[in-house]
Structure formats: C-alpha cells, structure tokens
Design a protein around this nucleic acid. Structure first.
Lengths: 193, 193
DNA sequence: TACTAAACGGAGACAGTCCCCGCTTACCTC
DNA sequence: GAGGTAAGCGGGGACTGTCTCCGTTTAGTA
C-alpha cells in the first residue's frame, strides 16, 4: 500500500554507496564503526546517511541482508547434499563462522533471533528462522534431533556457541568442538526424548 | 615488592564511594554506564575516578570482585551439599543467573574467561577458574562429566548459555533448559567418552 | 527553459571519554 | 599547635561520536 514512487537517481546512487562502504566499515571495525565516518567515506553528508538509515541497526541489516539470504540458500543446498542431521550441523557451523568472522554480523544475527520488543528487524530474522525451521523439522523427522526443540532455540544456542568460541579466541578454531558438544546434547538420549 | 604505603584517608573514602556508586550504576545501566556520571554521583571529579581506576574494566572488576568471590565460596558449599555432577550443574546455573541479572557482570565474566591478550583481569578470572576446576575435576572423577573437557571451556560454554538465554528474554527463564541441553552433551555418551 | 519537490550536506547541540595541571589538604615533624 | 610537603583533588577543555535542523542544490517533469 505504501506508495512506491521510484527513488531519484542521486538518492539511489548514495544509497548503494553507503551500503558498500558500511559493509566494509562494519567488517573492519565491528558494529560500532563510526557512522559519520561511513558517511564521509561514502562522500555524503551525515544527514543523508541518517535519512536513508534512521538507526545503526537499519544500516547494519541493510548492509548484510545479502549475506543472510546466502545463508538461507546455503541451507537448501546442504539439505540436498546431506542427510538432515548432518545438514543442520554443517549449516550451524557456517552460521557460527559467519558470526565470528564478519565483525558486525554478530550484532545483527543476535538481534535477529532475540525476543526483544524491537519489532524492527523482521527481514533477517525471518530468513534465518525459516531456514532453520526447514532443517530442524527434517532432522526431527529423521530422528536425529529431539522433537521438543524449536528452530529459534537452535539459532539462539548457535549464537551462544559463537560467543563461547569467540571467548576462546583463535578465529573460530573452537566452533566445531563446541558445536559438537551442543549437538550431542540435542540428540535423543537413551532414556527417551 | 610494591611499596604498600597506606592510602590517605580522603583517598580511601573516595575509593569506597566510587565502588559503591559504580556497582549501582553498572547494575542499572549496564557496562556502558557513563563514567563521568558515576564520578559526579560519588561527589568526586572525573580525574579522581580515572586515577583510581584507569580503565572501565578496572572499575567494573573492582565493583564486582566480592560477587565473584561469593561465587567461589558458593562452589565449595555446593560441593559439600550435592554429588559432584549436580553441584557443577547448580553452580553453573547460579553463574548464569548472575551473568544475566546483574547488568555489567556479563562483560566482566566474559573477559574473565576470554583468551584475549589483555592480561589485566587476573583476579576475577583466577577465582572463577579455580572454582570451576574443583567442581569439574570432581565430576570427572565421579564419571558424570567427559574427561576431555577443560574447566575454562565449561565457563565459556556457560557464558554462551547466558547469551542464548538473554536472547530469549524472560529474565533468565530459559537458563535451566539451555543448560540442561548443554549438560546432556557433556555427559559421556554410550559409545564412550 | 522553468518549476518544484526530493534530496543533499554540514554546522552545531549534545553526550561521553580522558588528560592535564593548578589548587587543596591529610599527615608527619618539631 | 604550626608549618612543610607530597599525595590527592577536581573540573576545564580537547577530542570523538551521534543525530537533527534547515538553507541550498538538483533530478525529473512539463
């Protein structure tokens, strides 16, 4: 219903520029990169930046949607290549790697799966949740994942694993280990689910 | 070796004041509470604050050492009251609760178990690690915890669980659940440790 | 070519960090 | 108690970052 009058050419140009520069800046300096600095590097005034992206979150999300979408696609690829349980495990691994390696993604993924009152970040959250849901349900069908676990819980726990790996430093060297410790806990136990 | 000339009376007074106010401020506003504001509330100039506590970390640590020490004591109490496995589980639960409920503790506990190059935060890190070590070793003796797990890893994973629970919101309502998922993964699996 | 609404941009108000250095005062000595 | 002195104080101010406001510029249209 929103009137979708096409963006003016200069506006579109600035928008793209900002996205490109922002992705670089967040990757380099983390989620707290200076916004005025991003504007400057993109060759626009800070007013322009704030008009296009009212909050840091908005910019962060816009800068990384494509990566998030790529994770969604990746989920489907893995679902075709591997048995459900392994597909889920591998996907979570890749999610964790992204979380740690691309500084700035952590904040985005974190708020994407958070239950806060900020209704803002629908896009990324939706993508991640639907991808997780497909893999989780398949694994549950297969019997390699407890039935009482929600897709979003898996995402939150993966975020926890990322945090733990980050503390251990070493560029995510510990992700596989911590993730497998978690996965063992997720499998149906001998005495029943 | 360090010359331990006793603090001047006014200095000591200010020091105590700052600690008290800082603990309140961090609890209320999280780890990013304004330092100048803390100084003001304590009735001292900001110079005084920065002389006593050169970094935010230093103040954070000083403000919460007693809580950390309490966690150490608590570990021993639990070790007496419960079988090792349960003692460890309960202790981790209390650690997570502290992490979530007292805003500001999270940053402190996080850097206490991080592997970063900042050698600063020895005190809290040491306390936590030694407490964890006692419980972990006992549980391993008992056979309720995999032998290939380091005490510090347990602390890092607990931090991850805190993060995950925080995302779920609800004031730590999910800690027990997420922690038990993790614990199940830590138990020796049927096919061997 | 002229018009107008959309978009720009940067000055400036505000908030936080942290240092510097002239001033104050607790403590010691006599 | 008086005086000397170094320990300690404190707030002004430089700096960095956020975010808004509004006069100016310009793309798109007729």
């Amino acid at each position: 219903m929103t009137q979708v009058r096409p963006m003016r050419a200069d506006a579109r140009r600035n928008y793209e520029r900002l996205l490109k520069v922002a992705a670089e800046a967040f990757a380099e300096h983390g989620e707290n990169a200076s916004l005025d600095d991003i504007a400057k590097r993109a060759g626009v005034g800070s007013g322009t930046l704030y008009r296009h992206f009212p909050t840091r979150q908005a910019l962060l999300e816009a800068a990384y949607v494509d990566r998030i979408e790529a994770l969604g696609t990746r989920a489907d690829e893995l679902a075709k290549e591997l048995p459900p349980g392994e597909a889920l495990a591998e996907w979570l691994y890749e999610v964790c790697v992204g979380t740690i390696q691309v500084r700035g993604m952590k904040a985005l993924l974190g708020s994407a799966v958070s239950d806060g009152t900020n209704v803002t970040l629908t896009v990324c959250g939706t993508h991640m949740k639907s991808a997780a849901q497909r893999l989780v349900e398949a694994a549950q069908q297969e019997g390699t994942l407890r039935k009482d676990i929600e897709p979003i819980e898996v995402l939150r726990l993966a975020h926890g694993v990322s945090t733990a790996s980050e503390l251990a430093n070493g560029q995510g060297k510990h992700i596989r280990r911590y993730l497998s410790l978690l996965t063992d806990g997720l499998r149906p136990a001998a005495q029943g689910e």
